[in-house]
Simulated assay, not measured.
Amino acid sequence: MRYTLFLNYGEPAEGQISDEDMAAAQTAFAEYAAALDGAGVLVSADVLQSTAAATTVTSRNGASEVIDGPATIADEPVSGVFILDVPDLGAAISWAERCPSASWGSIEVRPSALVWDREQGWHQS
């Protein structure tokens, strides 16, 4: 079953994180991704740019609106995602607990209702 780990944490201000701390975090995430991949459960992972780079699109009653910025303002915006294919929620939680950003933010674990691929179209994972 597929689960998405939403990595939620505040966006640091310019210069708020030292180069040494950033390097340590990058190493921790590289090791985490390698562990997920080595276990054969990693489907995809993305680190997102800051919310300042976000664009929000809505379409209501045939009219589209495009605005600069995120859809919502949050103290802990989504900063990245890992999509896993694991047997159950317990396994997904176990991997979430090992995520480096669990120590400075929160990890939302959410199962996929449907997934899409070229061979099957929309289907349950």
Results as ranks from 00 to 15, higher is better:
residue 61 N to V: 01
residue 7 L to Y: 11
residue 46 D to Y: 14
residue 107 I to S: 00
residue 74 A to L: 07
residue 27 T to R: 14
residue 91 A to L: 05
residue 59 S to M: 08
residue 65 E to W: 06
residue 101 S to D: 15
residue 53 A to V: 09
residue 114 L to A: 14
residue 88 D to F: 05
residue 97 E to R: 13
residue 90 G to L: 04
residue 60 R to M: 01
residue 1 M to Y: 06
residue 61 N to S: 07
residue 49 Q to M: 10
residue 62 G to T: 08
residue 79 S to E: 08
residue 80 G to K: 07
residue 75 D to T: 04
residue 57 V to I: 04
residue 45 A to M: 11
residue 50 S to K: 11
residue 114 L to K: 15
residue 76 E to H: 07
residue 18 S to E: 13
residue 94 S to V: 03
residue 97 E to H: 13
residue 110 R to Q: 12
residue 22 M to Q: 04
residue 82 F to E: 14
residue 27 T to S: 14
residue 108 E to M: 03
residue 88 D to K: 02
residue 76 E to P: 00
residue 33 A to L: 14
residue 17 I to P: 00
residue 104 W to T: 11
residue 10 G to I: 06
residue 19 D to C: 01
residue 94 S to R: 13
residue 120 Q to W: 12
residue 101 S to R: 05
residue 42 L to H: 02
residue 57 V to N: 03
residue 17 I to Q: 06
residue 23 A to T: 10
residue 41 V to W: 00
residue 104 W to E: 09
residue 71 A to V: 04
residue 103 S to H: 10
residue 52 A to Q: 08
residue 6 F to W: 08
residue 18 S to D: 13
residue 72 T to K: 02
residue 93 I to Q: 04
residue 59 S to P: 00
residue 105 G to K: 01
residue 91 A to H: 11
residue 85 D to E: 15
residue 119 E to V: 12
residue 23 A to N: 04
residue 113 A to E: 11
residue 96 A to C: 07
residue 123 H to M: 07
residue 15 G to L: 15
residue 100 P to G: 14
residue 65 E to T: 10
residue 62 G to V: 09
residue 77 P to S: 10
residue 105 G to S: 02
residue 5 L to G: 00
residue 76 E to Q: 11
residue 98 R to Q: 13
residue 91 A to W: 06
residue 122 W to D: 07
residue 121 G to K: 00
residue 8 N to Q: 12
residue 54 A to Q: 05
residue 121 G to Y: 05
residue 73 I to N: 00
residue 116 W to F: 15
residue 17 I to A: 04
residue 14 E to W: 15
